[in-house]
Design a protein around this nucleic acid. Structure first.
Length: 586
RNA sequence: GCGCCCGUAGCUCAGCUGGAUAGAGUACCGCCCUCCGAAGGCGGGGGUCACAGGUUCGAAUCCUGUCGGGCGCGCCA
């Protein structure tokens, strides 16, 4: 619809150019928007105001000439010039009727587009360290990333969804050590658990399965394990030195093979838990990319070498530094440590290098906002490698703060005191969780009200929208009892009978849906869909209260049934994009 | 100290790449089921768009500064 109107304006501009009213070489961008106020028509253009300078004319005079040059169209009933020089388009009834027909014909496909023209985009999201279950903070990234990916897929992009698994590094060693210490406890050893260890119950579970598998075969006396290990923080020592020494001791005592086994047991069971959680949440991935594989395949080494060859590295204090300040970063970064090990950042450079090498047209990272300081250095690395850093978009998701009974719920991963995503899902349900997470734009701090999400009342926007869908389904279910049936063909022929203001409002909003989806995808803003659905549901509920659908007159009845069927379809499509179900009854 | 994000109704938030009289929900008050689900609808009060400058036909929106809140500034991941 919007596109068609833009075309009309474009032709009018061409006509004025040929008449000499506008410079022939002028580059014109057609501005056309939905109006806020129905009195201003359906669409408005500020073209005359934008072009008044080059045309050396008053905005309203120019608007007059533009309107005179507009080609006729059956969709447009009239055009007005208003205010400082807006050109307002009033659509005719046939435009609305075309929308209904389109929705019913396209069904689930209504709202989809080929905007992306088949370009490929990779979306990486969540990518939480597999050192524990996903918590509610990860939930927002999961819901947001999944919805952005789905929106892009709906608008014609080829989407690849990926989870980056941090299966290497010190945090994983701390997990493995935590598991082993709990295992020793199960063997009957008196273990003083390190301050820096992972204390969650899931560590006990993993230790238990280690114990089931091996019995006491991996047991070593506590005195032996803690031999030569410096004091922990509660004993006046340093928690970092303490845990690092413990990791070394575990490696030595277990041997490389057994240590790796313990490590992998922890990794795999947590990863399995994460995958299940996300699957149940309706969040699917095409690939789980292993950080370890980057090192093992030599990709990290190659990335560092490429930086060296490009001349952006130097040696200092025995370490290799990347001169990221050359690309606007605030300080240079270490890529290879003094001890010869590459840093996490080096892996990340390699990973992003790999992403771009895979040839995606666009790469999107969804990160927690606490990682925002990381963006400049990753982009710097890509530039240094000679890649186009603009192909990478980093979307930062702010934290969600949980409220229960008006109180803030406090969390900390290390101490094991956190609300898991699973607990949240079980408490409020997947639908409410998915919806609430994307209800706010990602850079907005979010207050997640558990009591509201749980409430099955009008306060809860999820139920409000789902209720509209269920109501329509309910109406349709009752037709047989009244000896009626829906005849779409008759409905289509009688759409001209839909003359009520409520019907007009509903039809206009149905026609907006494709624009909403395209805009939400383009700007990575799923919340626009959530807000739109709220409005659409409101239009329907208002209509429902004001008029009857199951009436005697078959012409009007079927026309109205066409309209509410189309509404039901759009609600279902929209909720589907958000990963929320559209139930026929509640 | 430096950097990023955010300040809009009592509360939670929209406000589309600058556009016409700043909008929803919630809370509060008052109405509406012999009628397809009242998990609904209608009406009412409630705002210095944090503050001060600037850009222009026009600023909640863009720029600069100030104040307030969140987060980040490791040879951690």
């Amino acid at each position: 619809m919007k596109h068609l109107l833009s075309q009309l304006l474009y032709e009018a501009v061409q006509t004025l150019k040929s008449q000499g009213d506008l410079p022939a070489d002028l580059d014109v961008e057609i501005g056309l928007e939905r109006t806020r106020d129905r009195r201003h028509g359906d669409f408005a253009s500020n073209l005359a105001m934008v072009l008044c300078k080059p045309a050396r004319s008053k905005p309203r005079d120019l608007a007059d000439r533009l309107v005179a040059a507009l080609p006729d169209s059956e969709l447009v009933s009239r055009v007005e010039i208003a205010g400082p020089g807006f050109i307002n388009f009033f659509l005719g009834p046939s435009a609305c009727h075309a929308t209904i027909a389109q929705v019913l014909e396209q069904g689930e496909r209504y709202g989809r587009s080929d905007f992306g023209k088949g370009k490929s985009v990779q979306v990486e999201f969540v990518s939480a360290n597999p050192t524990g279950p996903l918590h509610v903070g990860h939930g927002r990234g999961a819901a947001y990333g999944a919805t952005v990916a789905d929106l892009l897929a709906a608008t014609g992009y080829r989407v690849h969804r990926e989870y980056y698994v941090n299966d290497a590094g010190r945090q994983m060693d701390i997990l493995a050590t935590s598991v082993y210490l709990r295992y020793l406890d199960l063997c009957g050893e008196e273990v003083t658990f390190p301050a820096n260890g992972y204390k969650g119950d899931y560590v006990w579970d993993i230790a238990a399965s280690l114990h089931r598998e091996h019995g006491d075969a991996l047991r070593h006396a506590v005195a032996e394990v803690f031999a030569g290990v410096p004091a922990d923080e509660p004993q006046g020592g340093d928690r970092e030195l303490h845990i690092d020494a413990l990791i070394r001791r575990c490696r030595e005592l277990l041997g490389a093979e057994r240590y790796r086994e313990t490590f992998d047991l922890g990794l795999n069971s947590i990863l399995h838990n994460i995958r299940t959680d996300l699957e149940e949440f309706g969040v699917h991935y095409d690939d789980w990319f292993s950080e370890r594989s980057l090192t093992e395949s030599g990709m990290v080494e190659r990335a560092v070498q490429r930086l060296e060859q490009a001349g952006y590295t130097y040696e200092k204090n025995g370490a290799t530094w990347f001169r990221s300040t050359d690309f606007g970063d605030e300080k240079d970064r270490v890529v290879v440590r003094e001890n010869g090990q590459s840093t996490y950042f080096a892996s990340d450079i390699a990973y992003h290098m790999n992403k771009l090498e895979r040839g995606y047209d666009r790469v999107i990272d969804v990160w927690g906002a606490d990682h925002h300081g990381y963006v400049p250095r990753v982009k710097a690395a890509l530039q240094a490698l000679g890649d186009d850093a603009d192909r990478l978009d980093v979307l930062l998701v702010q934290f969600a703060v949980l409220y229960r009974g008006g109180e803030k719920v406090q969390m900390s991963t290390r101490s094991g005191e956190f609300v898991t995503l699973r607990e949240l899902r079980h408490e409020v349900g997947n639908d409410a969780a998915r919806f609430f997470y994307v209800m706010r734009k990602c850079e907005q701090h979010m207050d997640f009200d558990l009591d509201l999400a749980k409430s099955q009342s009008s306060d809860n926007p999820v139920y409000y929208i789902q209720y509209a869908h269920a109501r329509i389904a309910s109406v349709l279910r009752q037709m047989p009892d009244k000896g009626m049936q829906w005849d779409a063909e008759t409905g289509t022929q009688n759409l001209h009978l839909l003359t009520e203001a409520h019907e007009d409002a509903l039809m206009v909003n149905l026609s907006r849906y494709p624009e909403i989806v395209a805009g939400a995808a383009l700007k990575h803003e799923p919340h626009a869909v959530a807000h739109y659905l709220r409005e659409l549901a409101n239009d329907f509920h208002t209509y429902y209260n004001a008029h009857q659908f199951l009436i005697e007159d078959p012409a009007l009845r079927n026309a109205r049934l066409n309209l509410i069927q189309a509404t039901r379809q759009v609600i279902a499509n929209g909720l589907g994009l958000l990963g929320v179900s559209a139930p026929d009854s509640m």
